[in-house]
Simulated assay, not measured.
Amino acid sequence: MHCDGSKMHSGLGAGIVMSSPKGDWRRYALQIHFAASNNVAEYEALVHGLRLAKEIGIRRILYYRDSDLVVQQASGEWDAREANMASYRFLVQQLADGFDGCEFLHVPRTDNEVADTLAKIGSTRHAIPPGISLEHLRKLSIKPSPDS
C-alpha cells in the first residue's frame, strides 16, 4: 500500500494505492472535509488505507510512504509529541495489530508518485478519473485533543 496526504489552498486530500503480488490495483482519492494540518492528512490516509485493507481481507501489508515522520512514528521508532499525533500513532498501532504482518517503509517521493497524484486530486477537488474510488472524510478518525 502506498499513501500520501496533501494540503492545498482548496482543501485537504489523501491518496491510497493498493497493489497485490499478482499485480491487481485499487486506487482511492480521499477528500477531507475538515480543517487540519498536512500531517493529519498523512495519518488519515494511513488509517483509511489500513481499514480498507482489512475490509478486503488483506492479511499482510507493506506500507510505503514518503513522509519519514509518519513512517517512523507508525513503526514506533519515533515518539509523537503532539497529542493528536500520539492519538493517531496509537490508532495505527491498534489497526496494524489486526494484520498477520504489517511493515512501515520510507520511500523517496519519486517512488510514491501515484499516491501523491491521488492526494492532490482529493485536495484540489478536481474531477475523479475513471477507475479511482472517491471517499469523503467528514471527521477525524481520532478524538481530537482539547489543546489542538
Score class of each variant (00 low, 15 high):
1 M>W: 06
2 H>M: 01
3 C>A: 14
4 D>C: 01
6 S>K: 15
6 S>F: 13
6 S>R: 11
6 S>H: 14
8 M>G: 06
10 S>C: 03
13 G>N: 04
14 A>S: 06
15 G>P: 03
19 S>E: 15
20 S>N: 04
21 P>V: 13
21 P>G: 06
29 A>T: 14
29 A>I: 00
34 F>M: 11
38 N>D: 14
39 N>F: 14
42 E>M: 06
49 G>V: 02
49 G>C: 05
51 R>Y: 02
53 A>I: 07
53 A>G: 08
59 R>V: 05
62 L>Y: 02
63 Y>R: 04
63 Y>I: 03
67 S>P: 13
70 V>I: 15
70 V>N: 03
72 Q>R: 15
72 Q>C: 08
72 Q>E: 02
74 A>E: 14
76 G>R: 04
76 G>D: 00
77 E>S: 11
78 W>G: 03
90 F>R: 07
91 L>H: 09
91 L>N: 07
92 V>A: 11
94 Q>L: 15
98 G>L: 14
98 G>Y: 06
99 F>D: 13
99 F>K: 10
100 D>N: 11
101 G>Q: 12
101 G>N: 11
104 F>A: 06
107 V>G: 04
108 P>T: 02
109 R>N: 06
111 D>V: 00
112 N>Q: 10
113 E>A: 10
115 A>N: 09
115 A>Y: 08
118 L>S: 05
119 A>E: 03
121 I>K: 00
121 I>G: 00
122 G>D: 01
125 R>I: 11
126 H>F: 11
127 A>S: 15
131 G>T: 11
137 L>D: 05
140 L>P: 03
143 K>S: 15
143 K>C: 09
145 S>F: 08
147 D>A: 12
148 S>Q: 01
